[in-house]
Design a protein around this nucleic acid. Structure first.
Lengths: 357, 357
DNA sequence: TTTTAGCACTCTTATTTGCCGAGTGCTAAC
DNA sequence: GTTAGCACTCGGCAAATAAGAGTGCTAAAA
């Protein structure tokens, strides 16, 4: 892991192999490395070195007469120690700035736009996530009266997310009752996580509503649902089709499984929600490091979006294990920086007086 | 088209071919039809009939020494005239009832659940759509004050959809101003489609807000965005992975295009929004009938969800051209019936006092 | 001790060839 | 109008062959 255990030449060879892998595809042999340049020795020497690198676990050989391929450990070492800084083109930078500047408003929309952008800039699959969280609460309630038996409950979550639910009552209620209900909820339920809404609180709520307590049961159930939805997180995927351009996804059955995993969302949502490489750092999960078996020859890179120390979301990229890490890392850094600027009210870069959340 | 032009025996042969196609896959020959039963003639006669059916355009021959395959016209005739009623199993019915009964609340969620269900019950891809519409308006506004420079605008659309936007103001405003703004919007903007919000109206709105008119410009812009989002429709896809089990999607490049189309949403959203086979009827688009070229060997079946004569959404199924139309039609009928029950307040089947929208 | 050149060997991939069988269309008899 | 029989066609499969890429090893050179 230290990296010091590899001679300079071994590093150079490993890097050459990973680089070739990233653009090319197939296994790479000793002559190809020589041809790539930067080596002042013969192919025989390179062969010897490669044999040693294989023994150390950095390389693998698909079969006896093929070239070498980096192992998971090889990629890990590359990402940790050999990666070069990728300089985004002005065009790429402009794309990030433009799209996100136009998009304003909800974090959902920003994340969604960001995942599309991540996908298009990198040619892999983009992912936008609102992580699972155990302790989301609702900071503000509001009721919107529509008809005598129909109103809407709007809830602003502690994360800033706004959710609403239609509620139909069995007995007619008035607009005033709805207002009163919202006030009561703000007084009693606001700030509580799902687990903290206890029976005594509900009973007090009913007392407070007095004769109009009929809907309290329904409303509480709706709030539970709301909090659960909020806790459950969200995930959007963009540009899955990009993956099909890479031969590692040409196995239909395997790709189908991956598609299923992406649709089910659970696994990846869990993964991102529970993996934290420290405050807002980029995470790189290579192959089996992700614990999701269908992603064993894929890599997932993601970066949390943090505001005031709270993780509000994450954007990521999913691609083949041999993805262009340098480019992906740079893109995600660029995107997340932009997003965090957008959502930090203090740092707001005003453009035309529009605003955001 | 009339169907009368086909002899009873030709119909039976065509039906046998389509049926075999639906479960089996490959082209079907005269002997296979004979083996399937129901024919009281020899394979030679069947061959003769098939040759005629091919000449009429109902069948096609992939190559000279293969069996026959139904043409688009063949499938069309099958769907229009030969299809048999599919009886859902009690298990299937139960699944529909259960899942949709538990799910309550927003149409979005119901549609989403329905598309998943459609996908799982049919083993094709499920689609949930809120169609594009040119004339969505907002029936009710509400403002939620959060901080001196930060409030939320909540809008209830004429379709029942609730949307919200965070708004940050340049100058501090009070909670009362937010309330007043919402009232003014309800008085002046509610009920108007995007195109109807004219300058005079905006100016009157500013007058009405008097000294606090500073945010009107921002708010109007947000409302425009809101209306555009509402007009643009929405689309969700569930169970794309199912498609990969069918050999017609084994061509990676082609499948990739289809995936792209499903992600872009535009084409299909347009298609569903502009195709109306009359009030709430099921639409069956086979192959090139859909005008979307990547769907040329697919079929799209969808059913609008109608409430009070207004189309609020649609659920559909996308699969290979040789899909099990009988099953798909039955499933969509079952689902849509259930959904419409759920959203018709008059017909509400109460369960435990919870409610829906 | 390290590096290099050379060579035999291995294993994959692509291509060719030949064969089998499914299915047809046609003709002639029923 | 229907059926049996038969020659013919064409795709798919499998074995056989050829080509190539890359390795490991040995022995000589630095």
């Amino acid at each position: 892991m230290a990296g010091g255990e590899l001679s300079e030449r071994k590093k150079r060879i490993l890097k050459a192999i990973v680089d070739a892998q990233i653009e090319g595809g197939g296994p790479v042999g000793s002559k190809a490395i020589l041809a790539a340049g930067g080596m002042n020795c013969s192919s025989a020497t390179i062969r010897n070195e490669m044999a040693e690198l294989e023994e150390m676990g950095y390389l693998e050989q698909p079969h006896a007469s093929a070239g070498r391929v980096p192992s998971e450990l090889g990629y890990r070492f590359y990402v940790d120690s050999l990666i070069e800084h990728y300089a985004m083109t002005t065009h790429e930078i402009a794309q990030i700035n433009n799209l996100l500047r136009v998009k304003m408003g909800e974090l959902d929309q920003i994340l969604s736009a960001a995942s599309h952008l991540a996908s298009n800039l990198t040619n892999y699959t983009g992912i936008a996530i609102k992580p699972r969280a155990g302790s989301v609460s609702i900071s503000k309630f509001e009721g919107i009266y529509l008809e005598p038996d129909h109103f809407i409950l709007v809830a602003v979550a502690s994360t800033g997310t706004v959710k609403s639910k239609h509620i139909r009552t069995e007995r007619p209620i008035s607009a005033e009752t709805v207002t009163k209900l919202a006030e009561a909820l703000n007084a009693m339920i606001a700030g509580l996580a799902a687990g903290q809404i206890t029976l005594p609180i509900i009973m007090e709520l009913e007392t407070r509503m007095g004769a109009e307590s009929g809907t309290v049961g329904t409303v509480i159930k709706v709030i539970y649902d709301l909090l659960n939805e909020l806790d459950a997180g969200e995930m959007q995927v963009a540009g899955i089709d990009h993956l099909l351009q890479y031969p590692e996804y040409s196995d239909t059955a395997q790709f189908r499984e991956l598609l299923g995993t992406l649709e089910k969302k659970d696994d990846i949502l869990d993964l991102v929600s529970t993996t934290d490489g420290g405050e807002g750092d980029i995470n790189v999960l290579i192959g089996s490091e992700s614990r999701v078996k269908v992603m064993n020859n894929s890599a997932l890179v993601f970066k949390p979006i943090v505001k005031d120390g709270k993780t509000l979301g994450a954007i990521g990229v999913l691609g083949p294990r041999r993805m262009d890490y340098a480019k992906v890392l740079a893109t995600l850094e660029g995107l997340s920086g932009n997003i965090e600027n957008l959502i930090q009210p203090n740092k707001q870069l005003h453009d035309g007086g529009t605003s955001d959340g």
